[in-house]
Design a protein around this nucleic acid. Structure first.
Lengths: 337, 337
DNA sequence: TTGTATGCGTTATCAG
DNA sequence: CTGATAACGCATACAA
């Protein structure tokens, strides 16, 4: 390995001068600088980030800890983080906690021991300990997607309640009245807010909440399928469905297809969160799309700010969703009820 | 920050002893070890990986550099890498080069300057320089998905040619004769091998390759759409299509839908690579599925081996694909031609 | 078995 | 403006 001392010797200057040239902080004689840069090129010198990090006691790496690398929401979000981070001189490394608190713990410890410059995390549970560990260690953190109670951190969330409310209101607008809801795990803030939005839309329209039309599942495809089956089998007779995430929407759709129920004629469907290639699914799906890329961008900006101003007040960003109306929820023949 | 010296003082031993206890290499008196571990717990000591890395001149981080974080193939592959890596005591960080050679370059330099223990990379171009840089620097590397010529590295590839051949042969079996092909960028080995497979199946069946039935696109949705449109508009009159990756398949399907062509009645379709929720698309899509998770596993195993045996001969793994027959390619009424 | 001392490659402080 | 030198926190060769 070629070190800064090799370069110094080759250029006939001191190691300190090489360092100064490389970092551009202090003024250095142009002639010397020139000698240094050409020596660097000639020797193929690349600075040892580990040594540098040790000296500066921090790296230029951001850890983005997401709860599911296979969920399009997160991958799209990561793109937003990257674009800001790279521009700010940081590299982004992605860690997949896989909805597993233990893996998440491991990555957090890794981020800490590796002295990462900052962490953006979508918590895989409502356990507060892990994130608290980061905060207590003085590691800049931004929490995204899921709310964590009792922690004063920067956060970037989407307006889940309002998104769900719009989706449900849209179904009501279209003339549907027996609107079922497949909600997510109640310990996730995203799930409870979406359920709240569903209830609020019903209330606003003067419709009562019918417990027989509500199911809670696990945000997975199988869960959505089972919940839909249960709704149909128990005689709740829904004429529409609001499903609280993308995978459960897919599961519910599969159930409807299997039972030869027509969408939206027999049952209309609106799903929360984007589904890749939603246009290829028949019928095309009405969705509440989240600004995933923008979530990433904003989180990155907050993290950059937090790094430079560790003591600034915590900022909480709430981004709007957008209802994308497609075929699965188009107006039914008005029943005039 | 609490260092190894703080622990040593608290436990009444030397820093060296603390280090030994922590790493478990050397023998140390159980009583002392006990004092050390309890001091570690009491002080909340966590070792500084950066200092450790500097000393050992390597980290316990693997970089997985993929060319598209939004492609399900790669995310699934990453899961395979993770499972092996974690078991072997490494952490995995994901880097998204976004099919951009420049970003890829940056991440490679980062992996080098950060002294990563190893790199698994799916090259975003056929440029050999970047990977060569890694090799020359002695960084253990495994190349996946795409072939890189003139480099003696461990590789894990899938049998693209055979997969494409099976897909095409399947269409021939089903009675289709005018089988079109939408190929990928010719500088990617995956694309050329899939094209070769298509041609070989035609040859085996005694069918001639008709240039008017072949288009090359960019592995993206838009490209697939345009290629399909061109095939239809130029009067090539295909009765089936083999599309060389998932996104182009989706694009081609969209074109067919838009033109009210029935699949598979008017045109049968087989796509290479998995498509999430392929079962929801109507008709369901016949695909050549790749063992993405297994690619990751094998790559991880090779990397682990390469780290321990830097001078071992390069291993090249070739994994089989699997044809998953669904509705889009089912037998047409035999024309007896 | 345990402790002492040194160096990993940088950057920052301080004299010059 | 430049150079010598001391740390950063840890692991290890060597001495005890």
């Amino acid at each position: 390995m070629v070190t800064i001392y090799d370069v110094a010797r080759h250029a006939g200057v001191s190691a300190a001068t090489v360092s100064r040239v490389l970092n551009g902080h202090a003024k250095v004689d142009p002639a010397l600088a020139e000698r240094v840069t050409s020596s660097v090129a000639e020797l193929g010198y690349r600075r040892n980030a580990v040594a540098r990090n040790l000296r500066k006691s921090r790296t230029s790496l951001w850890a983005v800890i997401i709860s599911d690398v296979e969920n399009p929401f997160f991958t799209s979000m990561v793109r937003g983080v990257e674009d800001i981070a790279l521009a700010a001189g940081y590299s982004v490394v992605l860690c997949n906690s896989d909805e597993n608190p233990e893996k998440e713990s491991n990555y957090i410890v890794a981020a800490l021991t590796e002295q990462m410059a900052g962490v953006i995390i979508s918590p895989s549970s409502n356990r507060v300990d892990d994130v608290k560990l980061l905060l207590d260690s003085g590691c800049p953190v931004v929490v995204i997607d899921r709310e964590l109670h009792g922690l004063r951190t920067d956060t970037v969330l989407v307006d889940n309640e309002r998104g769900a409310e719009q989706a449900t209101a849209h179904l009501i607008d279209q003339g549907y009245r027996r609107i079922a809801c497949i909600g997510g795990p109640r310990w996730l803030s995203t799930a409870t807010h979406r359920y709240d939005g569903y209830r609020r839309a019903l209330g606003t329209a003067g419709l009562s909440l019918e417990p027989s039309l509500v199911r809670f599942a696990d945000f997975r495809e199988r869960g959505g399928y089972d919940a839909m089956a249960s709704l149909l089998d128990d005689g709740a007779e829904p004429d529409a469905l609001f499903a609280a995430n993308n995978l459960m929407t897919v599961g519910a759709m599969e159930c409807l297809v299997q039972r030869d129920l027509a969408v939206p004629t027999d049952i209309a469907v609106v799903g929360f969160d984007t589904i890749p290639w939603a246009d290829l699914i028949r019928p095309t799906l009405t969705t509440v799309s989240q600004p995933a890329y923008e979530v990433g961008r904003q989180a990155a900006q907050l993290l950059a700010r937090r790094i430079t101003k560790p003591d600034a007040d915590a900022t909480n960003v709430l981004l709007p969703t957008e209802l994308q109306v497609r075929a699965s929820s188009t107006r039914r023949i008005s029943t005039g009820e």
